[in-house]
Amino acid sequence: MQQTLEQKPPVSPKVSAPPMAPTFSIPEPAQMPVSADYKTVGVPLVENAKFAMRDVNVFYGEKQAVFNVNLDIGENEVIAMIGPSGCGKSTFLRCLNRMNDTIDICRVTGSIQLDGEEIYASKMDVVPLRARVGMVFQKPNPFPKSIYENVAYGPKIHGLASRRVDLDEIVETSLRRAGLWEEVKDRLDAPGTGLSGGQQQRLCIARTIAVSPEVILMDEPCSALDPIATAKIEELIAELSQNYTIAIVTHSMQQAARVSHRTAYFHLGKLIEVNDTQKVFTTPDHALTEAYITGRFG
């Protein structure tokens, strides 16, 4: 017994930045480095860009998490971001509505423009920005309030409805769009936390769309859900893409393939390849992308 314990390999080194998960699969992505002057292959830039990112670098203190990313997100496009754990895709996503501001040591350089407006400009107010760029998180996080209150909260604080009937209408349309109305219309006063995981996540989506955002960021929205709930969310994403621009980070390549128009592959904080989803999953341009989607590392 004693001997086998001693033979154990040393504990893998700690990763410092909070949102980056430790990497432990073999071979690790770290063993497949990308040169500093890499160039993203494929079609990172588009004509009708809603979001335009140029030379985006993100640092956690001394450690750089995202390197020189150039990427456009088109109007009403669903873009999926895939890549191994700790590759910086979530960090990058959180730059788009400045959620990284809540982390003291996080620093962003480069240019991120929403409809030609620099979102990291000092005069940019994050409150309206986050109303325009909504976010759905990995773990369903409804407020510990009623279902109604959950959806009505955003419109209330932004003053979108002055009368109760208007608010009721926003709540109903948001819940309908999120595909939750039929399930909860008789118990709007029930606590949102009492719903199932999948329903909670759809409630969070309803809450996000209640403030009529232009872009919805989704950070692994299905990773805490079972397959049936996941299928419902995916259906919902397809529907929402008619009205919204959606950027989704996912660990599931099948999900990326099912819901997105374009797919971006991140590797160690670098954007390796952006192409039409179909192309990425059939004939990727870059060897690393191919290695990842064929499961040779993870």
């Binding site: 109303a131 976010m135 996080n141 510990p144 909260y153 955003g154 604080i157 932004h158 969070c204």
Partner: peptide, 14 residues
Amino acid sequence: PPSIREAALGIGAS
């Protein structure tokens, strides 16, 4: 829980 803070900030609460 931090998730509640993120939820509030994420829909544009100050």
